[in-house]
């Protein structure tokens, strides 16, 4: 299972925890699997089958938009980070 790190604004889907684990061979499958356990998650990060413009997703600290996007392959040891911008100060 891959590790999924959620930025603070998304942690209502992880009971407040900074990271969860999820099954899936691709990023898309991982998001779908999280959504099946935590309904509403996919709607929060995806729109019309694409990653929302104000959400960034990194697999092993690399931006998936620069690679294969939702089709990015994900393995057991991979770390996925999902984050919008934050602005507090």
């Amino acid at each position: 299972m891959a590790t999924v790190r959620l930025a603070t604004p998304l942690r209502k889907f992880s009971d407040g925890k900074p990271e969860i684990t999820a099954e899936g061979a691709t990023l898309e499958e991982v998001i779908k699997n999280i959504d099946s356990e935590r309904p509403g998650f996919a709607d929060k990060v995806l729109e019309n089958g694409e990653i929302k413009r104000f959400i960034n997703i990194y697999v092993n600290n690399e931006d998936v938009r620069m690679g294969e996007g939702l089709k990015t392959k994900v393995g057991d040891k991979d770390v996925i980070s999902i984050l919008p911008a934050v602005s507090g100060g």
Binding site: P9, F54, N56, A85, S87
Partner: peptide, 15 residues
């Protein structure tokens, strides 16, 4: 470059 758009109202709370 990193965040081309700000999140919509209400998604990211303030301090």
């Amino acid at each position: 470059c990193v965040f081309p758009e700000a999140p919509p109202a209400g998604m990211v709370p303030t301090c």
